[in-house]
């Protein structure tokens, strides 16, 4: 007669493994649901497909390795906070690289001019999402978003594209609810002014 009673340690191990597998499945579902919007957000901010993919992948890795055991409702603000930090790091590196390039001897003609971060952006043309759509309005929206100050754009994308509420956006941006409302209101106003001709 076979007895299928497991030792307590084995049973505990099985429970732990099952719990971890459940977390991994939940994380996979979360990342699948979020990854395209996150990529668009990064791509519009960085204007570069490779950099955007790198930023999204880094955010995924950080979330998986460090914060997967946190409650699932915290994943979204955590993920976007990591992503925005990564985007800012990439932009800073570009600015530093631009300054260094300005000091190099073969750039002596331009040395007197302050480096323009926008000019350092590798690919100012709209990404494949916009190209595939072929929509003039989408292109105009993308250009208008790129002209916004970083925090306003970040706030607008989190609230509008990602559909976060004020509190969640504040958690993701690391600021107060009041700041979120201010950033969002200014972003909407600026976009309205820029896109007026396309929206009438």
């Amino acid at each position: 007669m076979h007895c299928s009673i497991e030792a307590p340690a084995d049973r505990e191990g099985l429970v732990l493994t099952a719990s971890r597998d459940q977390t991994t499945r939940a994380l996979n579902g979360f990342l699948t649901e979020i990854e395209r919007r996150a990529y668009r957000m990064a791509q519009i901010a960085l204007r570069h497909e490779e950099d955007a993919l790198d930023a999204v992948q880094d955010a995924m890795i950080q979330l998986s390795r460090r914060y997967a055991d946190r409650p699932q409702q915290e994943w979204r603000p955590l993920f976007y906070r990591i992503l925005q930090n990564r985007i800012r790091d990439t932009q800073r590196r570009r600015t530093v690289r631009g300054r260094l390039m300005a000091w190099l001897p073969w750039n002596a003609d331009d040395a007197g001019e302050a480096p323009d971060p926008l000019a350092q952006a590798p690919d100012p043309t709209p990404g494949p999402g916009a190209r595939a759509e072929g929509d003039e309005i989408m292109l105009a929206l993308q250009v208008a978003l790129q002209k916004l100050p970083a925090r306003q754009r970040e706030c607008f994308m989190l609230r509008n594209l990602e559909g976060m509420d004020v509190a969640e956006t504040a958690a993701a941006m690391g600021c107060s609810d009041g700041s979120v409302k201010t950033h969002y209101s200014r972003a909407v106003q600026s976009l309205r002014e820029q896109l007026g001709e396309f929206w009438t």
């Binding site: 990854e35 668009r40 999204v56 999402g129 759509e133 989408m138 594209l161």
Partner: peptide, 21 residues
């Protein structure tokens, strides 16, 4: 507009995102 553009990403980008995940 933004959500549509996110959903209409090309296959290569979708594949790379899946690999990253």
């Amino acid at each position: 507009l933004l959500r549509d553009s996110a959903m209409q990403l090309d296959g290569a980008t979708r594949s790379r995102l899946a690999r990253a995940r």
